[in-house]
């Protein structure tokens, strides 16, 4: 059984004057309908790049893309990386949709929200302009915009940030897509609005049985909604596992460090935060060896300075839990004092 989306060895690079930026390097993941995959990373980790490639949104004249991303459609699988651009375009907005971080700049300021939603609908449906606007009002109502019928003719700037993101979601879902890619959908929003939007995405996912890819830097958001997590660092996936495995049995020092470095509202007391020293790597001319090695506290635990000479493979450490590290699960649990069996 293959999943709805299967990404295999997807690499995206951009040539620049300073050298080749390997923004996404040999990335593989999959997500099924009804499932939420979170892709976590800091800025410059390449977490959005592979998904923009799936959507076909990179400038074909600049981006160098290799690998494959198969959508298992009812009438046979399609590799959206190698398929003709025109074919991929006919999948956008219909089979796969995407919403973005900043809902203000992502909506056209000169067109009413109804107009913009109707435009997406009429691409794949026959119907008059009035049908489109009626469908838009229906969608606005579905995503929880009060008195949707009166608001279809309003312009994006007349909505608040949270309402704009709802408009974006309505537009993305107007043709019942099977895959929704949400790129930092709540980062620009206030925290009380964030929880509204996350709840909405979860409800709609259930209703339409969608596959959801959530791109985020916020591990709290991940814990709230994800089923499976890919952690990215330096353009590569360093860990890929189920949600509980990532949070309680992480097999990668970066994930462990990240979890330790964030303050939590539920943990009182002014303990000192355990910061990860150093800076994230540049994606140009990555050094040999593990990209995280310069910041890793466990480098000395690996024999023969392997970490700085050789890049570890993304290996299955325990059942369905992949990590890119030379350390074995027993070593990790001794070093972090975690009990691999706990929780």
């Amino acid at each position: 059984m293959s999943k709805f989306l299967e990404v295999k060895n997807l690499s995206v690079s951009f040539p620049t004057e300073d050298g080749l930026v390997k923004a996404s390097n040999d990335v593989s993941y999959s997500v099924d309908r009804g499932e939420t995959l979170a892709i976590v990373g800091e800025s410059g980790s390449g977490k959005s790049v592979s998904n923009l490639a799936i959507m076909g949104l990179h400038n074909a004249a600049i981006a160098q893309i290799s690998g494959s991303a198969w959508l298992n459609l009812p009438d046979g699988p399609v590799d959206v990386i190698s398929a003709p651009a025109e074919q991929v375009r006919r999948l956008r907005g219909k089979v796969m949709s995407m919403i973005f971080q900043d809902p203000m700049s992502s909506l056209h300021p000169y067109y009413s929200v109804g107009n913009q939603i109707a435009e997406a609908w009429s691409l794949y449906n026959d119907g008059s302009k009035r049908d489109g606007m009626a469908r838009a009002a229906e969608m606005l109502d579905l995503v929880g915009i009060p008195s949707a019928k009166d608001r279809v003719k309003d312009f994006p700037h007349q909505f608040s940030g949270g309402m704009r993101q709802r408009v974006m979601i309505a537009m993305a879902l107007v043709n019942n897509p099977s895959l929704l890619i949400a790129d930092e959908p709540t980062t620009a929003l206030d925290v009380t609005v964030q929880s509204q939007i996350l709840k909405l995405i979860q409800e709609i996912q259930k209703e339409f049985n969608m596959a959801v890819i959530l791109i985020t830097h916020d591990l709290g958001v991940v814990a709230e909604v994800a089923d499976r997590v890919c952690v990215m660092y330096g353009g590569k996936i360093v860990e890929n596992a189920g949600i509980d495995e990532i949070f309680y049995k992480s097999q990668h020092p970066y994930t462990i460090g990240l979890l330790d470095s964030i303050p939590r509202v539920d943990k009182l007391g002014s303990h000192r935060l355990k910061a990860i020293p150093g800076q994230p790597p540049s994606l140009i001319g990555l050094p040999t060896g593990c990209a995280f090695a310069p910041r890793c506290e466990f480098v000395s635990e690996v024999a023969g300075s392997q970490c700085t000479t050789q890049d570890p493979e993304l290996a299955e450490k325990t059942s369905d839990h992949f990590a890119r590290c030379f350390l074995q699960p027993e070593q990790i649990s001794t070093l972090t004092g975690r009990k691999a069996s706990a929780k």
């Binding site: 009060p146 608040s160 940030g161 949270g162 309402m163 206030d190 925290v191 009380t192 609005v193 964030q194 929880s195 509204q196 996350l198 709840k199 916020d218 591990l219 709290g220 958001v221 991940v222 814990a223 709230e224 994800a226 949600i243 509980d244 949070f247 309680y248 979890l259 964030i262 939590r264 509202v265 539920d266 929780k343």
Partner: peptide, 27 residues
């Protein structure tokens, strides 16, 4: 209270058990 309950906690087990107060509307 609503503000605190909206802050996601990076701990899936706690998240699953949490009762959220979701405020309606915007500021």
């Amino acid at each position: 209270k609503a503000l605190l309950s909206a802050v996601p906690i990076p701990d899936p087990i706690i998240e699953r058990q949490r009762e959220r107060i979701i405020l309606t509307g915007d500021l």
